[in-house]
């Protein structure tokens, strides 16, 4: 250990001597009589301490999710740079994921969303398969809404399957969840 320290000191001294011996063209001549204290400060022989740009570290830390449970902490380095692009490209969502999102939207919102998502290709992709409306969607709509909705988007009712029946709060009317298949648009 001592040997290592000695070696390190010798190396530092050599570096220091080497820097003193540097011929600074055009500067050394005039500096001889100038303010030596200032030039001594400029020529600090010590290597600069490692600089970690705060902005980058902060960005990386902000980018990482909160640390998970204890069993995972040991496996994760404190800070790591992740090379992949993590931008939300909603238009690239897989079809199943889009369907899952639509399942959580009431009919009224599906109608509103349709025009926007059509541009992104979501809507078309959803229409290309059998359309399943779940009870949680129908709960927010009426038969009239659903009928309009299907007709509006070129569908006809091919089949009706009751998944679940429940009583609505106001009228105790039976409201089934239904499965429709997209038709050819000819009503």
């Amino acid at each position: 250990m001592d040997e290592l320290l000695e070696e390190f000191e010798v190396e530092m001294q050599q570096q220091y001597m080497g820097m003193e011996g540097i011929d600074l063209d055009g500067i050394s001549d005039s500096d001889d009589s100038g303010d030596s204290s200032e030039s001594d400060e400029d020529e600090d022989p010590r290597p600069p301490p490692p600089q970690y740009p705060e902005a980058i570290v902060d960005a990386v830390l902000a980018y990482l999710p909160p640390m998970p449970s204890a069993s995972l902490i040991a496996e994760r380095p404190l800070v790591q740079l992740i090379p992949c692009a993590r931008r939300a490209v909603w238009t690239a969502l897989p079809h199943e994921a889009i369907k899952e999102i639509f399942r959580h939207l009431p009919i009224s919102d599906l109608l509103a969303v349709g025009t926007v998502l059509d541009d992104a290709g979501w809507y078309q992709r959803w229409r290309d398969v059998d359309l399943t409306l779940h009870d949680r969607q129908i709960r927010h709509g009426s038969y009239k809404d659903i009928g309009h909705y299907i007709h509006l988007h070129g569908g006809v009712v091919r089949s009706l399957r009751v998944d679940k029946i429940f009583h609505s709060r106001k009228s105790s009317q039976l409201v089934p969840a239904a499965t429709y298949a997209r038709g050819d648009g000819s009503n």
Binding site: A88, W90, T91, A97, E100, I101, F102, R103, H104, L105, P106, D109, A112, V113, T115, V116, L117, D119, A120
Partner: peptide, 23 residues
């Protein structure tokens, strides 16, 4: 996660949805 996205969309106008999803 799908419910979260649906909640982000729910009740918004088409223009607001565009902005929310970054279209």
């Amino acid at each position: 996660v799908a419910k979260k996205v649906a909640d982000m969309i729910k009740g918004k106008s088409p223009m607001e949805i565009r902005r929310t999803l970054g279209f």
